[in-house]
Write a protein that binds this DNA or RNA. Structure first.
Lengths: 224, 224
DNA sequence: TCGTATCTTATTGTATACAATTATGGTTCG
DNA sequence: CGAACCATAATTGTATACAATAAGATACGA
């Protein structure tokens, strides 16, 4: 991660994920080069990678923009994720090692701890949730599936959503993780697949609910 | 397609697909720049894109190689394709326009003609087959699904396989296409999905059979 | 002979200058 | 007043030189 293009990549990526660069905004190579303290060459390199991840898009004349996501786009991404991560869980069920199994359980313990108290530690929840899913991906042992899923999962709008999860959603998520572990322990691929798919679909509706509330609240906020 | 990086991209791509560059072979930016008649800058750009398509891979020290595919990798790619292109067919079933429907039927007619005579026109078969699947993708109207599928489908080893299809496989393929059209006509997404998945799975086994024969024949050829 | 340290060469990474293209604003003409 | 058109500015694309790094070769010592 010491190469200039790597630094540019992760810095630009972080700016998009943190919404410092807002969706629809045009991206100028030179400006980013200044911000990152490198020349345009590594920035161009980074932009190609971010384009492959759909974090930026280009118009017909090669100008770059922070990707905009409609609710439909997001629904589509969640559906794809449910399909593919379900498949990953199925593969994982018959390939997971004892070590990976332990890692999953540890993750869930840490998640349980993070959401136990009155003010849940969302940061810890998110990080352990990430590790949980990454471990399953690793157990699925499919480079291609991993690559595709990575490009689908890490979308700014989705990542920010979890910050607004209420306790009920956090608990449900935890329970679904427990069910996944149970499916793995019984090497039941079909159970794992459907549990994972359901897990992702529920996450989508949690997102949609929050989003809906945002849409509804927005006018009120504007009036206040 | 007039930009130097676009020309480099399609030229290198073609070289890989035609096996002028053999799997596992190291790729040198400067050499490709010479071949394509451009500087290293657009070549580097093209390589990033090809990397995103898994046509080239990089080792830990950033050297590029033509991607190598094990039989397991290929099986995995076909499985993913069956899953995703099945989903695309399902979406297409409820979204396809009259125009697209007509295009599909025309394609199938041309395919029928191409495989009717004693010496099938494999080139025409491949081209119309490509259009057929592309049309369904278009009807599915999902940018993300299209992108992912494109990166999975166009693998050199898979494309070359069809060149060795026997008449029976060509006919089966054609019949499956007809079934897909029928499913679309009835707007039956589930039927379309399972038919497409079966279509892809059959294609895999046709590939595997040919590959198996190659493996078996190879030693004999070496002895002759 | 083997391993290892060091030098040399090959290859990729970055910066910069300039070329090509696209957007923008203003001007003229109908 | 609007539309077509040009001039200019903004932005991206390409070539090239050089820097950094990794691979390969050679020499030396154990």
């Amino acid at each position: 991660m010491s190469r200039a293009s790597d630094r540019a990549y992760s810095q630009i990526r972080r700016m998009i994920l943190r919404a410092d660069l807002v969706p629809g905004e045009q991206i100028r190579e030179e400006q980013l080069a200044e911000v990152c303290g490198v020349s345009r060459t590594p920035v161009r390199d980074a932009l190609r990678r971010l384009e492959a991840e759909s974090l930026i898009s280009r118009n017909e004349s090669q100008r770059s923009f922070v990707a905009e996501w409609s609710l439909e786009d997001i629904a589509e991404a969640f559906q794809l994720r449910a399909l593919l991560e379900g498949r990953a869980a199925k593969r994982a069920a018959t390939r997971i090692t004892a070590e990976q199994m332990r890692a999953l359980k540890d993750c869930n313990c840490r998640i349980e701890a993070a959401i136990a108290c009155d003010t849940p530690d969302i940061g810890a929840f998110l990080e352990n949730n990430r590790i949980f899913h990454a471990t399953i991906m690793e157990a699925a042992a499919s480079v291609r599936l991993t690559n595709i899923l990575t490009s689908i999962v890490e979308q700014p709008v989705v990542l920010r959503t979890a910050l607004q999860y209420d306790r009920q959603n956090l608990l449900r998520s935890h329970n679904e993780h427990q069910a996944l572990v149970a499916a793995f322990e019984r090497c039941d691929g079909d159970w794992a697949e459907s549990t994972m798919a359901a897990h992702i679909h529920r996450a989508f509706h949690a997102y949609a609910d929050i989003h809906q509330r945002e849409l509804t609240d927005a006018p009120c906020a504007a009036m206040a």
